[in-house]
Structure formats: C-alpha cells, structure tokens
Design a protein around this nucleic acid. Structure first.
Length: 584
RNA sequence: AGGGGAGUCGCCAAGCUGGUUAAGGCACAGGGUUUUGAUCCCUGCAUGCGAAGGUUCGAAUCCUUCCUCCCCUGCCA
C-alpha cells in the first residue's frame, strides 16, 4: 500500500529529468540561497538541489483537484531527484489577487503533506517580490531595442495583431528610438498615464504564425493596489513576461505547466535567451515542459465555474464537501494519500484524458481501508428483540478496531436484549441469494451470538417494526463454541440502550452527466440531490471523536467528523461508500 | 484556414535512437480466503498499437498520405 503511494511510475517528464541529469546539465548550477539575477548567483556555491521545480498558483481562488495533480507532480519530482520545489505566488495582476487566497493555498499545500520551508531554506516566494527585477529586465530589453512602448489603443492592437491565418501589422510606434522608449516607459512607471494608454511590447515579429510572438505585451498600466506591494507600482508585468523571469531568478530547472501553454514556450525561451545574452540572467536557463491537465467526470474544475457555484449558492461555500476544492476534499475526508495514490495511478502525459470519478473514489477507498479504524453505525434502524435473552443482561463484546491490524486494539460494545439492526438486513420473503435475516434463518450478530429469526411484527401499513429472534447461547464470537455453527450472514447491531444519535450527511456527485462542460449552461446539469441528511444510530465510543476523525462504519463506508459538530450532536460527512458487489 | 499538440484494451498508461509471445494500474469476469456480500489472494482480459500505403529479414516504433480530437487572435494566468 505505502509503496503505491510513494513509488511513482515513470513518465515523460521523469525521463527528461533523468536524461538532463545524466547529461550533467546542472553540474555547475549556482544558487545564492535566495532568488536573483545573474550577478547574485555567479559567485555563489553550486546548488545542493539537483533540480528545482515550482508550483506557481495565482492567489485568486482556492486550490482544486487539478492543482493537486500539479503539486504532487512538482513536489514529488523534487523529492525523488534530491531537489527542491518552490511555492511561488504568481501575483502579477493586482486586481484579482488577495491574501485570503494565498493563506488558503499555503494551508492546502501543507495539508497535502509537502514542505517548502525547512531548516535549510525557505522557498515560499511571491512574484511581486521580483517587481524591481522585472522592471530592470524590461529596461534591458528596451536598451537592446527588443521592446517598445506602444501608444495604440487596445482595440488597435487587437486589430493589428491579425488573425490565425493573416499576419499582423507593425505598430506605428514600433520603430521609436530607444531613448524615446526609455523615457516613455519611465513615465509609465511614474504614473503619468492612465490605465490602457500604452503598453510595453516585446519586438519580435508581427507576421509570426505563432500569435504569441506577434509583439506580445509585457507590461501594462494598472493603477490598482496590490495585496503585497500596495501602491508602489502602477505598471505590472504580464504573466508571459514575468513567468520565465521568476523561474530564472529562482534557478528553476524544470518549469512544468499544462498543455495550453505550449504555444507560449517559444516566447518563454525568447525572454530567457535575450536576458541571458544581455547578461541579466545566468545559465543554465529553466526549461518549460507541458503535461495534460486533469479532467474528471461529474465535476467542473474551471476557476470561473467554481466561483459561480459558490457565489450563486449552489453549494455551501468553497469548502462544501461536494466541491472539488482541496478545502472541500479535506472536509469530505479525501485524505492526502488518496490524492497521491490516485495521481500515481493516472500518471502524467500529454494526452487529453477524462477520468471517471469512480477511479478517484477507488483510490480513496484503498487508502482509507488502511487508514481508518472501524466503528459501528446503524443507518436505517429497525428493532430486533432477542426473546430468550435475559432482560437486563449486558453481554460485553470485544470488537477489533481494524480486522487486518490487531495492533490497533479492541473496544467493548454492549449487547442487550433489544437491539437496532439495519432495516435492509431483514426481509420477510428473501430475494434469491439473500443470506441475511429472514424468518427461520440463522445469522451472526457480528462479534456476538448467532441468532435464529423467529418472527416479526408490522404496523398497519405493513412496515416491519420489530424483528424477533432467539440467540444460540454457545456461539459467542471468540469462544470455543463459536465455530460450531456456520452462518453465511453476518449483520451489525447496536444496543438500544447503549448507542447514541449522530447526524450523517450523504453526498453524491455534484453533476449528473460525465461532462457538465458540454452543457450550454453547466448549472443545468447540477444534481439537485447531491446532499441528504439523516439521523443515525452510532456506537457510544464515537462520542469522544473530534473534527477530522475518520472511520469506516462497517458494511457502509467511510465517514469523517465535520467541524460543525457540537458536543451533543456529532455530524459526519460520508466520504465514500464501501464497494458493494451484492447487487451486481 | 495559419501555428502548436495528441491519438496503444472500457478508463488511464509504459514502450516509440526498429528485433523475444505489446509492461503495469483501474474497471470487468471467474475462483479462493474472510465474523464487513468490504479487504486480501489467485486466474483471465489488445495476432493488436487512429486509417491506408511503403521501407525492412523484421515496425506500435522509420517514411508518405489521410482521418479524428484538443489548444492559440486578453493590456488574464
């Protein structure tokens, strides 16, 4: 089990890294201990980290399952190849980002079990900490006549960019002098212009078949307050310009992103190459590699749609256990190891894929089977009366916490004359192959006695309200006589006098169809029955559990104590049911 | 239509500098163990690698043509 979580199968990125290491690409890689341009690193020692990767979220939302894939990939690579993985906030757009998101992101990465700060170094970074460097990098490009300030309106820029099949047209400002560009860019920085008045553009090729190379904008004017730098800046670098620089300053070796950035790679390389040629950055330069993003059935993972679900109250907040966010997963009981096992199972490639949600749930079951102690709960109770049982007798039954791990200990559950059993465990007229309770049949009360069903009572509408039985005195579990009688059925039970009520919340898929994104409006596909609440009977030992405690309710599934639980009312979220092949 | 990617079993995914019978996982089917119809353990599961040609003693791996799907025309990331 552990090995399945730790041992990651090979993939194309690991192959690249191994080839790079073998080619001694990073033998003389310098690292000053903190990020910086070439002058900071040249006299530093060789980097002790064999490779460096990074997870670079924008702090404008909560992390979701897709991010988990990236986190596990990047941190996993660093761990496996004696490297380091940086957590870097890509906060280059002041209008969308804030500290609350950043805080939650940090918590989620830690929750998954990854560290970016230790006694050796602190690798928590903000792109906004590099704004000075980025400004310098822009100046380097302008001075090399590789960037210019464009006074065209956004509309003009759009029109002159051309189309997918037609080349663009050069801006009338494209051949401004270096001095003019320097003056203008400086004025931009000093707040002399309004948002959108002008923009700094890289000078590459307006006729490139790759639209991303048609003089992309690299700096824009935004008179906005930044969550980290306040009002210090009114110009901000674009992602496409900032990202390669961030990577290079941090001496990242492998910059791993999703497929939609493939077209961007030539520009990523252009920026690095030009800045290295002009002595701003040192080698080895980072290399970008792209993998396909995670797609799962019956959920949505686009940030826009997740925001909509929350803001329009289709769910109860970002951490609603139905949400495919990491904060939601935590409440739902999807443990970090579940994610790791799942990611190892699906692998990393460049193929577009759509993975069945059931595959994820299977990984959850496999991990939770090991991680969770067992408890007893009767979800849908009906009374069972043991007619030949002494009225006030309490039989103490030893119950193991985990059938495969005796070292996890045992607990005592009280057996009495009147019990709760599962409604589904009794049938008046048993269907074929049903081997639980029915009149005349013998089953075992799990960890207790074998019983024989002697009859039942119904109410006026024919519902069974009481099942009657006799117990077989010499059959108690763990005693020599217990094996004397063989039964096929094994049902769980709880004493009506020694049990407590708890609330259980059952969750189902948030969307009805495999791919809600195919709907004109994905909300039309929402599953209106994705949550149901019920009161259930639980064994007494559960009352000392606190939020985050997770159990398997035997024969049912995995459940986790929710933070909204009160002392007198514990609330459980159902993580996932057990596999059930009975109905197949 | 221009550019960039991808197509190997129901779902993933190795292999792809050509050379044993095309790894592995999940799912599925059958059998065994089991005081959870759970877990666990066995066994089975692509003469086939998007299609058609070609090169070769030999091709999923090389060449040609074709087909399908995804991404790109933000002063978002």
């Amino acid at each position: 089990m552990n090995n399945k979580i730790i041992d990651t199968p090979t993939n194309f990125i690991r192959n690249i890294i191994e080839k790079n290491i073998e080619a001694k690409l990073y033998e003389n890689k310098k690292w000053a201990g903190t990020p910086g341009p070439k002058k900071n690193h040249t006299n530093a020692n060789e980097d002790f980290a064999k490779i460096r990767t990074r997870f670079p979220p924008e702090p404008n939302g909560y992390l979701h399952f897709g991010h988990a894939k990236s986190i596990i990939l990047n941190f996993g690579l660093a761990n496996d190849y004696e490297g380091r993985c940086h957590l870097r906030f890509d906060d280059t757009n002041p209008e969308k980002e804030n500290e609350e998101y950043a805080k939650s992101i940090i918590e989620s990465v830690l929750w998954l079990g990854y560290k970016f700060q230790d006694e050796v170094e602190d690798n928590l970074y903000y792109a906004s900490d590099y704004f000075d460097y980025m400004y310098q990098a822009a100046l380097v490009l302008i001075q090399a006549d590789l960037a210019y300030v464009d006074k065209q309106t956004p509309e003009e820029i759009r029109i002159n960019r051309g189309t997918l099949t037609e080349p663009g047209k050069d801006s009338p400002y494209r051949n401004q002098s270096v001095d003019e560009n320097l003056t203008l860019f400086s004025a931009m920085k000093d707040g002399k212009f309004k948002d959108g008045d002008m923009v700094l553009r890289a000078k590459i090729n307006m006729a490139s078949p790759n639209i991303n190379l048609r003089d992309p904008a690299i700096y824009r004017i935004r008179h906005a307050e930044h969550h980290k730098t306040g009002k210090q800046w009114c110009i901000y670098p674009m992602y496409t310009f900032a990202h390669p620089i961030e990577d290079a300053l941090e001496k990242i070796t492998h910059s791993i992103c999703t497929l939609e950035f493939e077209d961007q790679r030539p520009f990523y390389e252009w920026v690095l190459k030009k800045l290295a040629e002009n002595d701003f950055l040192d080698k080895p330069l980072p290399k970008q590699h792209e993998f396909s993003r995670l797609n799962l059935t019956n959920i949505v993972l686009s940030k826009r749609k997740l925001i909509q679900l929350v803001e329009e109250n289709h769910v109860d907040g970002w951490d609603d256990p139905r949400m495919p966010t990491l904060v939601g997963a935590k409440r739902r009981g999807y443990s970090p190891n579940s994610f790791k096992l799942f990611m190892n199972r699906i692998g990393v490639s460049k193929t577009d894929s759509l993975i069945d949600y059931g595959t994820f749930e299977d990984s959850v079951r496999e991990v939770l089977n090991d991680e969770c102690d067992r408890r007893i709960a009767v979800l849908n109770p009906v009374k069972l009366l043991i007619e030949n049982f002494p009225d006030d007798h309490i039989e103490l039954c030893e119950v193991p916490n985990h059938p495969q791990y005796p070292e996890r200990g045992k607990r005592i559950v009280n057996l009495t004359k009147e019990l709760w059993i599962e409604n589904e465990d009794f049938q008046i007229n048993p269907e074929p192959k049903f081997f639980r309770l029915f009149p005349g049949n013998t089953v075992r009360l799990r960890y207790g006695f074998a019983i024989e069903c002697t009859g039942y009572e119904t109410d006026d509408s024919g519902n069974v309200v009481l099942v009657k039985c006799n117990y077989l005195p010499d059959t108690k579990s763990g005693t020599p006589g217990s094996d004397a009688i063989k039964v096929k059925g094994n049902i769980h039970w709880l004493s009506t006098k020694h049990s407590i009520n708890v609330e259980v919340r059952n969750y189902d898929r948030l969307f009805n169809s495999e791919n809600p994104n195919l709907f004109d409006n994905f909300l039309d596909d929402i599953n209106v029955n994705s949550v149901s609440k019920s009161d259930v009977i639980c064994e007494e030992s559960i009352k000392n559990s606190s939020p985050g405690h997770q159990f398997q309710f035997e024969r049912h599934g995995y459940y986790i104590v929710d933070p909204i639980s009160k002392a007198n009312k514990i609330v459980f979220n159902r993580t996932v049911t057990l596999r059930d092949t009975w109905n197949k």
